[in-house]
Write a protein that binds this DNA or RNA. Structure first.
Lengths: 244, 244
DNA sequence: GACAAGGATTCATCTGATGAATCATTTTTG
DNA sequence: CAAAAATGATTCATCAGATGAATCCTTGTC
């Protein structure tokens, strides 16, 4: 029978359960526009057969998509695709799907940069006020990992993510800390866009170092300014690369 | 057999499906601490019986809670409660459960006020730059509804929510607009805490009016400052009320 | 032409069974 | 006796089929 062997979309089923796989396939297809907003998904029975899963798995997957604000299921009406404005842009998966290389909307990228410029410098400022010894050590360690990972794209992404999320955590503000999953998805996507030019990453190291140092020195205004510089560098890079 | 008739927790099953009901019951109990973080939930079969639903319903409900970052299910290990730091604080339901009157953590309230003071004034600033005629009309209409709803707590909450979400929408930034569901939950909860004193709401009207006027006048800095005043009023009220 | 009744479609829910992954225990082996 | 391997038990993961409930749409009547 060889289930789901000739289904190309299911090829990335690597240990992740079938529900997670179904969520990923449906999420990617919805974001790609295979199903237009305002229109219904195929009926459960058909869709389950298409995805080569049982209806239970499909239903649990749809529940996940519904909780991400992407679909809404009602009897007789079917499962409708909700408008993009209702999608939860703080969800790691939704961001990951929307920022896939090749179909990134420049407008969304610009909005993300603006939002980061609002939030992250203020997080750095709070970190300079509230960071504990342990928080500061985490930030320093993340920066060292960034500096030592030049040339290794994979390690660079992980270190950069660690750097920025450490600062969110060091702000000791639960709401700002809750940005971590979204920021992780954003940074992964940004790197996939700009990693082609291996020169960019080292160029932004000095600004990162200044952020770490000013938080260490407990200087809120300087930490705020340094983080603004970090984001300015990223923005300049992406702006040029995508001709926003 | 009169299903779920003597279960007091299921009494709020008003038209909402059984899954939504199960999610609400479990979410509230987890937030209330009935199940401690790091410990497993009862096994599926027992829990389904306790909630008086089938295992399918329970499983779909748990999938929703998992996508909110509250639990994590793995074979043999059971369904574990995740630490609060992993909960999705941008989720309407999670916020609603955590901000229930009586068991609000003062720390979370303070974090929310700080985060709002970072985000909303900047949203007002962007709105002053990007708002369309239609956006401005929405904001003005929401303010009028606030002014006319004095004395009617329910209408006041709706109008205030409308006011603040209209501004997020008028910022024309998808990320900021994505705060709307979270802000809706936050404002509902704040009103439940402070509505007891009917004097507070009218007192904050002038600052709201200034926000609307400055956005109308397309003055970004003035709109930013006015929104800071709105939040300052809210903070002063809650600070006194909860002795933060 | 308006309205009511019925049928058809679709998701919602329940039930029972089997598979897969993990932990704890026991057994084997050096 | 100690360490490693085999075994068994527990729990979630997945599947399949059946019935219920809600809604839309067609049809028939006045």
């Amino acid at each position: 029978m060889a289930p789901s062997q000739d289904n190309p979309a299911a090829a990335r089923n690597l240990g992740k359960g079938k529900i997670a796989t179904a969520v990923a396939i449906l999420g990617e297809r919805i974001v790609a526009g295979d199903f237009a907003p305002g229109r219904p998904l195929p009926v459960e029975a058909d869709l389950a057969q298409t995805l080569d899963v049982g209806r239970s798995v499909l239903r649990e997957a749809i529940k996940v998509l519904a909780s991400k604000g992407m679909v809404s299921a009602r009897p007789r009406l079917g499962t409708m695709i909700l408008p993009r404005s209702q999608w939860n842009l703080f969800d790691h998966d939704v961001l990951h799907w929307m920022l896939r290389p090749g179909l990134v909307e420049p407008g969304l990228l610009r909005d993300i940069l603006v939002a980061r410029a609002i939030i992250e410098p203020q997080a750095a400022r709070l970190a300079a006020i509230n960071a504990t010894m342990s928080d500061k050590a985490n930030i320093r360690a993340a920066f060292r990992a960034m500096a030592e990972s030049v040339g290794d794209p994979d390690a660079s992404v992980r270190a950069d993510i660690q750097f920025h999320t450490s600062i969110l955590e060091a702000s000791h503000n639960a709401i700002l800390h809750a940005f971590s999953p979204a920021l992780t998805a954003i940074l992964s996507a940004f790197f996939q866009i700009s990693i082609q030019n291996p020169e960019i990453f080292p160029g932004n190291l000095p600004a990162h170092e200044r952020v770490a140092r000013e938080i260490d020195a407990e200087d809120p205004e300087a930490a705020h300014a340094a983080m603004l510089d970090v984001l300015g560098y990223t923005e300049a890079d992406l702006t040029e690369r995508l001709k926003l």
